[in-house]
Design a protein around this nucleic acid. Sequence first.
DNA 1: ACATAATGTGTAAACGTTTACACACGGAAG
DNA 2: CTTCCGTGTGTAAACGTTTACACATTATGT
Lengths: 374, 374
Amino acid sequence: MNKSYSLAESGCIDFFLIVCYLYVNVNTLIGGWIVATYKMKDIAQMAGVSIATVSRVIHQNGYVSVENREKIEKILEETGFVPNRIASGLKKSKSRLIGHMTLFNQNMLYEKISEAINREASENGYHVLTMTSHRGSGEEKNQVDQLIGQQVDGVIITSNGSIDPGLVSKMTGAGIPIVMVERCLKLKGVDRILVDDRQGAYGAVKHMIDQGHRKIGFIGIQSQHEVERLRLLGYKCALEEAGVTIQDTYISYSQTYNVGQGKAGIEDIYNRCSEDGLNFPTAFFATSDVLAAGILQFCYEKQLRIPEDISIIGYDDTLSLMMAPPISSMALPEEEIGVQGVRLLKRRMENKVLEVEEVVVEPYLVDRQTVKKL
Amino acid sequence: MNKSYSLAESGCIDFFLIVCYLYVNVNTLIGGWIVATYKMKDIAQMAGVSIATVSRVIHQNGYVSVENREKIEKILEETGFVPNRIASGLKKSKSRLIGHMTLFNQNMLYEKISEAINREASENGYHVLTMTSHRGSGEEKNQVDQLIGQQVDGVIITSNGSIDPGLVSKMTGAGIPIVMVERCLKLKGVDRILVDDRQGAYGAVKHMIDQGHRKIGFIGIQSQHEVERLRLLGYKCALEEAGVTIQDTYISYSQTYNVGQGKAGIEDIYNRCSEDGLNFPTAFFATSDVLAAGILQFCYEKQLRIPEDISIIGYDDTLSLMMAPPISSMALPEEEIGVQGVRLLKRRMENKVLEVEEVVVEPYLVDRQTVKKL
DNA sequence: ACATAATGTGTAAACGTTTACACACGGAAG
DNA sequence: CTTCCGTGTGTAAACGTTTACACATTATGT
């Protein structure tokens, strides 16, 4: 090595690189291939400088002579050197990792939010460690330990309003900032991105009322969670505002978000209407596109046309474009949700003490003309 | 500290814990809360042993007296200690991180595969760093550097057959094992999980033929990629085998996987049939559910019933259950794809030299009775 | 009784960065 | 001709683990 070192000093960089390639960094032999990874120490040796100087070039701080800077930059380029984030993370007590806890869900909404989070994080020099759990599985406890162990700089919790608050405290207790997104818990020190679901439902139902509908069905979820309560509330507000009395017969709550339950919901309303001697609604609002899909299946069976026979508005705009026919839906600004989530987190990660923030985002109607004018 | 230390030694653990909580590990004050994180050093001090002993308890290796083991375990429990993975990663040159490179895609298929990868990784003590890129964006180059920098122990590339092979070599060159999944490139030292798409398409079309169909349409993607070639091949094989001559008029290639293109595809065939004076097909095979959704939209407009007027089989079973009506589809074993991917990777990560492996998984028909018996 | 093995514990050197500090050189200001 | 500041560079000590090694102590076999 000493010999190689002097070679490098005397300017024979290229030859030296080959020597290095063969001898310095041979970590492993895989299938006969020589595999090399460079460390700052190696770069420093090749450039004939100290590792501190290399670091100064990489981080563009401190003083480095033009001559050395160029020499080092050239070597960096040639070797494709990538600094070891683990080592720097250890020294700086920053992993530049964001944890993302989410529930697995057959819904592109969460996929889209995830995507926005990943992208925004990446643009800010962070990476995302995703932990997917399954409703009621209790996996979160272990995941929290894993995230703390990985020294994540912050955590985003997407749509998991049922997470154990104790776990969240464990993280905040470890100094990890948290942002909850879409389905949130009101917790000390936890920022929130909320969707104005009351307004979303209100807007959808208002649109139907404006088109002349008065008998409007509601297909939602029986949920302890606030978002479903708000959607029902928005529905009721719109009706009350229009002076329409609320018919329980027109309201159906399912257990979970799935097509079958959506279809069962409208069938239930259909049957109860006959029993109660009421007219079947002329329009339906579903609190999720997946439930709306169930409504469409019902219509298909009964050979009802949309919007001629039945008007529909869905929610979340994940499937509506793909349905036959494509239906109107209240879309959520997934992009904004993800981006704002990362931004809030970033502010906390970078300057510790801040007020708790709450950002409210608004759904917007994607109108595909599935509400008939009466 | 020395005073506290002697307290611990004299057995006053509980009091000592409080002292520790207040003084030893006060890292930050957030909103008035005292925040503490423990290191092995702290645990060792509390237990009055050396840090090596604590490590032996945590990793359950080496000899530790029952007395010390119990004392340490108790403290570990009480403090909720989580070892710093960054530090151990640095020492062991293992991050226990798996990189996952995937393309963003409005398709639950990738979501499901991701989910399986995350779960299987987690069960094996790994975490997943997901890097989502967008077709043709060139984001991959940077992502590869990030993954190398994070010292990931392995990388899974999902459905990105268009990744630059040079980037893959950079990773294998850095000693990182790679598994490609679903859409693969044949590259030196890269394991593959392949879907038998030829067989999948063949099976779907065979099913239609068995039900008596002879005029069968194909809605696919004009793709350089092998999977679409295989699906078309499977379609043609099934027809040839049945002695049916292949009609170009019945075949349509779209640009990308989206509903609009699916609908345009079948409209195109419809128009060309009139021009050529051919009968419209009685059945359609689509190479993706999203294209099949387009077919359903066409049928809806034309008031064609399924399967009475038109028979359909989709592919990937991501949307078919939610359509009106739910349609038959060739499902891919997403679970198996993800799990096998992680397993292959794990074998490579744990014992370096292995033959390149190729696992082929089979699609299976989910029959929802949308092929009419002729 | 003595060698040897099994058990239990602590010390200290890594791992690859970052960064405070020290030092050296030149030029400008007094 | 000092003194001081702006540049440029290297040294070495962290960061929190893991683990080889050394050293005890006790048990076992002869």
